[in-house]
Amino acid sequence: MAKLHVSTTINGEPMEFLCEPHESMLDLLRGVLGLTGSKEGCGSGDCGACSITLDDRLVCSCLMLAAEAEGKSIATIEGMAQGERLHPLQQKFLEMAALQCGICTPGVLIAAKSLLERNPDPTESEVRYWLAGNLCRCTGYDKIVRAVLETAAEMRESA
């Protein structure tokens, strides 16, 4: 089958690509576009390491077809910082050591950002349930949850 032509927006920039009809968004990002910040931990939507947003909706890019990006807007970890300026979540994760090996970190950050956009004042439980789709095997989640709560508090103060 012929490749499909897709016009989309990735991290705020217009983008066109050709993809196979069965190709996942994750493979397209990592392969054709070279955006390897999204990770593949399982390929079945169970680990969240490939989390991106599609028109502000949090999705596992391994479960999404690349062709579904047509006319939509996608955000990946590569677009989270504004130039040299890290997003407050990125900065807080560094300050509070909320990462160890770092392979889950891009997905966790994308998911946490998506949470705070919806709920700027989450409880610990709300953070834990929102991030329940992002596996982390290194940290036991403690420092991740604390960093998200702390970022939320700081963002509320500066808002």
Partner: peptide, 21 residues
């Protein structure tokens, strides 16, 4: 002291290169 890790910035921005990257 709780310094920022040397590999941290790359890991929160998606730049860090793991084996399949």
């Amino acid at each position: 002291s709780r310094t920022i890790r040397p590999d941290g910035a790359d890991k929160v921005t998606g730049r860090a290169s793991y084996s399949s990257d």
